[in-house]
């Protein structure tokens, strides 16, 4: 170890590199590109509401649909599939981006 100061500086620079890299570069992950349905222009609620609350709407109505047998409810997972015909290009892209793993599709078929 002939030059301890230089070695320490190099090591520090190496360790801190990710911090500088994140600070200097564009830290944002690319926003998910969603394929919108062609057969309808509007969802059952405004897009912002659906984006934030679709899981709550579905979960809330679920009990009425399953336990009361009321299949005329507005928010049904089968209803989603009527317009959003490609799950991989819509649901999955946002779920992957947000890092959530819903269990809906374990049982319910969405193409």
């Amino acid at each position: 170890m002939k030059r301890p100061a230089a070695t320490a500086a190099a090591l520090l620079a190496l360790l801190a590199a990710p911090l500088f890299y994140a600070g200097c570069g564009n830290a944002k992950a690319p926003a998910p590109q969603l394929t919108k349905p062609t057969n309808a222009t509007e969802c059952v609620e405004p897009a912002a509401t659906m984006r934030a609350n679709h899981m709550n709407l579905l979960r809330h109505e679920r009990d009425n649909i399953v336990r009361e047998g009321d299949r005329s409810r507005k928010y049904r997972i089968e209803g989603c599939a009527q317009c959003h015909t490609k799950r991989a290009e819509f649901c999955d892209r946002c779920h992957d981006y947000a890092g959530v793993k819903p269990e809906c599709f374990d049982c319910h078929y969405l193409p």
């Binding site: 679920r62 009990d63 399953v66 336990r67 009361e68 047998g69 049982c107």
Partner: peptide
Amino acid sequence: FTRHDGIVMIDKH
């Protein structure tokens, strides 16, 4: 649970 029409069902959720 039992539905109003007498069918016994499981809420798998």
